[in-house]
Amino acid sequence: MTEAVVSSSSEKEEQKGASYTYWVRKITEDAAPLPVPHKLSPQDPQSQPNSATLGSAWNRAGTWEEKSLNNWATPRIKELLVSVGSIKLSSGTAKVEEVTKCIGDAFLVIVRNKKRVGYTYELTLKVKGELNLRGEKKAVGGHIDVPEFSFGELDDLQMQVKLNEDKDMLPQDKTEICNDLKKLFLEPVREKLLQFEQELKDR
């Protein structure tokens, strides 16, 4: 009696095991073969960029992406301002010798698949000139500070002029030179920054 029960139980386990392996084998045999990876050629549609989408490949929806343009913008601003050239003043000439401070950020933002650019900067321009003061030629130097300005705000561009210390220069001469530098450099500097702004838009 005991042997019959054992035999019956053993047969059930063997049938169960056989059934299990049958279905595993069946699924494996019927399953589709795994795809073989291959390199995309330039003609494949998957390799073609989506021309209707701006920004990076990962941002196909064009939702939000911000990119710093400082590596291009900062040296470009300096290059443009140094190219202002010589400006004729009432008593001589002066030029931007160097941009000693150019602090800020320029960036490109993609929002809802639309491109927007912006920037905020502040500048210091080192100026050097040769003036005729009371019949005597004199070399003068100083700097022009341009306080913080942003995209679309160049109509309100401001300048502050300071001359280097010169004990031989009369106060009224200093005032006249500062006013000249401020008045005559404002428009050429603004034009160069407008050029920068347009180049930024075109990127």
Rank of each mutant, 00 (worst) to 15 (best):
D166L: 00
L81Y: 05
Q46P: 03
F196L: 00
T93D: 03
T63F: 11
R112G: 08
T175E: 13
K101P: 06
S41G: 13
N59K: 07
S8H: 14
G92L: 00
E148K: 06
Q48G: 01
D168T: 09
L34D: 07
L108N: 09
V99T: 10
L186P: 04
E14R: 14
Q198A: 10
L89D: 08
N71K: 06
E153S: 13
N132F: 06
Y121D: 03
R112H: 12
S91W: 05
V111T: 13
K126A: 12
S56Q: 04
N164Y: 12
V6L: 08
D202K: 07
L108V: 03
L193Y: 01
S90W: 05
Q48P: 00
I27P: 13
G142P: 00
K126D: 07
Y22S: 07
E65Q: 09
S8R: 15
E122F: 15
K162W: 02
G17I: 14
V189L: 02
L194N: 08
S83M: 04
Q43I: 05
Q15C: 04
A106K: 00
S90Y: 05
L181Y: 02
I87N: 00
K39A: 11
S90D: 08
E14P: 09
E136T: 11
K192L: 01
G85D: 02
Y22L: 09
E191N: 08
G17D: 12
P188G: 00
S19G: 10
K115T: 11
L125H: 01
G55Q: 04
P49A: 00
E187S: 10
R203Y: 14
T124L: 11
T21N: 14
T21I: 15
G129D: 01
M1W: 14
C102F: 07
L69I: 01
D180Q: 12
V109T: 11
K26Y: 06
Q46E: 14
T100P: 07
G142V: 09
Q46V: 10
L193D: 01
Y119N: 11
S8F: 15
S47L: 01
Q15H: 15
G62C: 08
